[in-house]
Amino acid sequence: MSYVWAFAVGGLICAAAQLIAIHFPRLTPGHFLVSLTVIGAVLNGPGWYDAAIELAGAGVLIPVSGFGASITRGVLQETQRLGWEGLFTGTLEFVGLGIAAGVVFSALAALVAVPRG
């Protein structure tokens, strides 16, 4: 059942973004990645996004809004632990791995592959 949820919820987020994109043709994919990340970060202030991950799993974890939610999750956890320093040290707590993985894998890709178009 979790697979149906993941497919349906993840698909719905993407389809909704696509419909918005059709209505605002000046927006680039970059605008959507940024907006969704910010939305995910804000929604996780009260912990709502993490609650959604409990329910829909990868359907909300995999879209980049999950990336934004992870930033907030780190900040919340670290401010509880450290105080104000956590506002900054917490940002990369959970997404540092994703960024580092992106950098290392992409550098390897650039070593071996050329753009073909």
Partner: peptide, 29 residues
Amino acid sequence: GMGAKMFLIAGPVIVFGIIAGTLTGLVAW
């Protein structure tokens, strides 16, 4: 080339993600 421009499109996601996460965390805190 590669080093300087790797985050051409992903950069803004991290920039605004961190700003939003920090501000949201501040409010929650």
